[in-house]
Design a protein around this nucleic acid. Structure first.
Lengths: 249, 249
DNA sequence: TAAATAGTGTCTGTAAGACAGTATAAA
DNA sequence: TTTATACTGTCTTACAGACACTATTTA
């Protein structure tokens, strides 16, 4: 079928088979911070193609679901998390539609960026039925190829997901979505350092971020040595001018 | 078919009919600036649903095309422009996949943002076979509903396209993609004022933008009254800190 | 010469970056 | 008391915003 025939059908009425059809999946780039390192949830493929390689979790978009609906459902299935009780940030990242990106058939993937709020303890990734095992992997090690590359075009998707998050953290407080509802400035700074893979000056970070956050009035019980820290909540305000990202990363 | 059956098929082998399939289209948000006003290319639908209403141009993604390929092809078909000879900026915007967004069948649209370089003269929009007439419409008038609303969810897509462009112009020189290869600072300021729908102070605009651009050394022949202006070319550098967008828009 | 536009200079206030110093609490 | 962390103060430099002023060209 050529382009003009397709447009004619689009115009008049749809006849099954008269238009190109594709299988649609929702793929997830799930980030969390643990041990001061940015981690991504990956599953290991149990079947061909790319058998044995790591891949992003994902699955088909159902007949009566939007891609975003499917992303929420997949997240619940892959992590076993009850999303009703866990703060989670999900946003659409981009759509990947190269004709031969899956060698078996035409599969178009709508990738989603997911930020999991944790206190440093990562939830289990159970994987789907197509995953022999699944877990958390350090993003910068995956991307620098210290481990094997990802299946399909998932390395590219992961890279674009990291770039989206890193860029958005310059001018929003979206990084706080990787932390519990109440957090200290040091925790938030740790998130920035993990995502940007670069150290931040504590004093200036405090001065810049404090007016962007809501002070709960509460304080932490101090850890071994050090003063108790104030607890903050996220607000939706944009940071203007943005936080400067250290050069060279 | 439920989710787990779909995943099992995804794993093992694809059987046509065992997975949900969708029709995929590439829709275009084509922007150009003319007369100091941001314009968008729209076609008028000649058939149901939404017969007679304005819509974004677009069409099916072919079996061996990516969505981005299809966007390029559609742009050439709808505008009759030879893209090989015209500088055009195309980037993916977002994917719209609500199950009932097209009442006829499941259609998923990958929207693209297109910036057309013009010297103020807008090219003809020929429209597809499903468009009775087609042309350029002022974006802010369309969005404020002074004219009729757009077909399908195209008003939302247009709004998100505008927000993407307006936001990106704060920290990049992408706005220069709406101008010929060489342009004056006044032309570029006019683009900013059209997209942001707000006036900019000429002197400060010059001081902020000049280091972001490449000076060609050439000058314009002066218009009626006024001095000749220097001609610049775009560079890829990011603007840091970003240009502040006037409040209240 | 008048008018219109291009571009620069100047002043002020804000804040980023660097870093020293103080406060708080646990070991 | 020592140590580790949290947070504030200070100094310098940079630059955005406001706006006046000069330069250049056409009518």
């Amino acid at each position: 079928m050529n382009g003009s025939e397709a447009e004619k059908d689009y115009l008049q009425s749809y006849q099954p088979g008269d238009y190109p059809s594709v299988a649609l999946t929702a793929d997830l780039v799930v980030f969390a911070v643990s041990g001061g390192v940015l981690q991504v949830a990956l599953v290991r493929r149990g079947s061909h193609p790319f058998k044995g390689q790591l891949a992003l979790p994902g699955g088909f978009v159902g007949p009566m679901e939007s891609a975003d609906d499917a992303a929420h459902r997949e997240l619940a299935e892959e992590t076993g998390l009850d999303l009703g009780h866990l703060p989670v940030h999900i946003e659409q990242l981009a759509t990947y539609s190269a004709p031969l990106r899956d060698p078996r058939m035409r599969v178009v993937s709508v990738a989603h960026l997911v930020l999991l709020a944790t206190d440093g303890t990562l939830p289990d990734v159970t994987g789907g039925s197509d995953a022999a095992d699944a877990g958390w992997y350090p993003v910068y090690e995956i991307l620098t190829g210290k481990r094997t590359s990802l299946a399909f075009d998932h390395s590219l998707i992961l890279l674009e997901g990291l770039n989206r998050l890193a860029g958005k953290m310059e001018y929003t407080t979206v990084g706080s979505q990787l932390l519990p509802g109440e957090f200290t400035l040091t925790q938030l700074r740790t998130v920035y350092e993990a995502v940007w893979n670069a150290p931040m000056a504590p004093g200036n970070f405090t001065r810049k971020m404090t007016p962007q956050l809501e002070d709960t009035g509460k304080k932490t019980r101090a850890a071994a040595g050090g003063a108790p820290a104030a607890l903050f909540r996220a607000t939706e305000g944009h940071i203007h001018p943005p936080l400067a990202r250290p050069r060279g990363q």
